[in-house]
Design a protein around this nucleic acid. Structure first.
Lengths: 206, 206
DNA sequence: TAGATTGTTAATCGATTAACAATC
DNA sequence: TAGATTGTTAATCGATTAACAATC
């Protein structure tokens, strides 16, 4: 029952389930079933039941899952009962878009700082945040105890920045730079690279 | 040897391999091995060899893979010898960021049109594109024979917009709206939702 | 009660890895 | 040649699905 036994692929599906049932809640729905949720998400009912069963028993035979309750449980499991502060590294187009993006807050995260090495940008405001000098990054992040960062630098700085983030105590990195980065044990990295998704699809085109 | 036999999970790794070897090429490297590439990407050498072998024989025993040649082959397999035109739907923060993003071009894609339903935005320029009225979207996309689109609308419009895109002849959709969309057979959808990645990582925090 | 749906076990399916002959 | 590394087969591993007793 410790966290380590649960496959990452299962953990990765929980946010998808959460997103769907929060939407159902928004639409006024009270109860759902693994069958309905599965149809909505394009996965099997069995998979949903199996995944959820790794964390406890959240449903009732005959009736299914109470949406409010399941939502609460998923939020608890995913540590979303707090809003996590995030640092954005890089104040280019991507960093700027992330600073302006308002969709994180409702889902458990908020950007509270942004760094760049360009003196033209330092001191300017971006989406309510003042761009700070990357030279102070380690100290500022460490002080604020920020655990989550989004890397939006060019690819050739991503590894260096990552090492500084780790030094500053960051444990979760969402990397927008189109490059693989390496981190020590205990630090998590996820990747966002739209071009790889597009390229996967272009395989099937023509 | 037809396309249908190759698992999607394998196709999805090709862009990752391509990204890494293009980077190696940029760094002046001429040759690599499945071992080296695997270490760089955190996957096994066997997996890389197995994946590539689905598409042909690209290496030489004893020496490995010629980077230029492998890069060409991967680009050919992924249909990246042309630059694919893309439509952006939604001219909010996300759509605007996509219109400004310069990283697609080198990787086989370019945004050539952007649509919105807000009369305040229609006619304005965004990253070199003029925002067009979504009322004309189907006709404009069909005329231009655009096959790829990025959906950057609010979640509650994503399904409706998707149906219009399909009607217009779009076959590949990159969906930034935080909702599952359904499409007919033969249309591909990929998802970008940073919050789900963050939530996966917050599971391991604290 | 009858019908529906859960949680779980066992069976199936598919993906990854290990091993090695072939060969550069 | 000797060493290295491929492409491929067989073995292993892990994930998904099917089936069903339990029970709301």
């Amino acid at each position: 029952m410790t966290k380590h036994e649960i496959p990452g692929i299962v953990v990765g599906r929980l946010p998808i389930y959460l997103r769907a049932i929060q939407r159902m809640a928004q639409e006024g729905q009270r109860v759902t079933s693994s069958k309905e949720l599965g149809e909505r998400l394009g996965v099997s009912a069995a998979q949903i039941r199996k995944d959820l069963s790794q964390f406890g028993e959240f449903g009732k035979q005959g009736t299914g899952y109470n949406i409010k309750y399941l939502s609460e449980q998923l939020r608890r499991i995913l540590n979303l009962n707090v809003v996590w502060d995030m640092a954005i590294i890089g104040a280019g187009d991507v960093g700027s878009a992330l600073a302006h993006y308002s969709g994180f807050r409702d889902r458990g995260f908020q950007a509270t700082m942004i760094f760049d090495n360009d003196s033209e940008k330092i001191g300017k405001k971006m989406g309510g945040l003042v761009v700070q000098d990357i030279a102070n990054m380690i100290e500022v992040i460490r002080q604020a105890k920020v655990k989550v960062a989004m890397v939006a630098t060019p690819a050739d700085h991503a590894q260096e920045v990552t090492e500084q983030l780790v030094e500053a105590g960051v444990e979760a990195i969402l990397n927008y730079a189109p490059i693989q980065i390496s981190v020590p044990e205990g630090v998590r990295v996820e990747y966002i690279d739209p071009a790889t998704h597009l390229q996967k699809m272009s395989y099937y085109l023509e």
